[in-house]
């Protein structure tokens, strides 16, 4: 099955890249953007077929490598 991991900076952690995106959008005339935060998407193809087991395994991967939980949080979707 497939898993998608979305890693984002925790709220309160300064995101200089998000700030740059905000500035660039404003410069292009896109008004009304109050904030932009940049994250990362990691797609995994897994041999596991049980969704709960897959999710647990991917959570372990996030804790160990895919996210730095000092500054980042993660969300997992399995399908």
């Amino acid at each position: 099955m497939k898993a998608r991991v979305v890693v984002t900076l925790k709220s309160g952690v300064l995101d200089p890249q998000g700030k740059a995106i905000e500035g660039a959008l404003a410069a292009l005339g896109f008004s009304g953007v109050e904030a932009a935060r940049q994250g990362r998407v990691i797609d995994l193809d897994l041999t596991e077929t049980d969704p709960a087991a897959a999710k647990a395994r991917v959570a372990e991967m996030c804790e160990k490598l895919l996210a730095n939980t000092v500054i980042e949080s993660y969300a997992i979707e399995v399908a």
Binding site: V13, L14, P16, A20, N68, V70, I71
Partner: peptide, 17 residues
Amino acid sequence: LTEAGLLPGALMRNAGL
């Protein structure tokens, strides 16, 4: 060292990018 948890905190992208 911070990634390994041997020192606290994290080193993020420079504020000036």
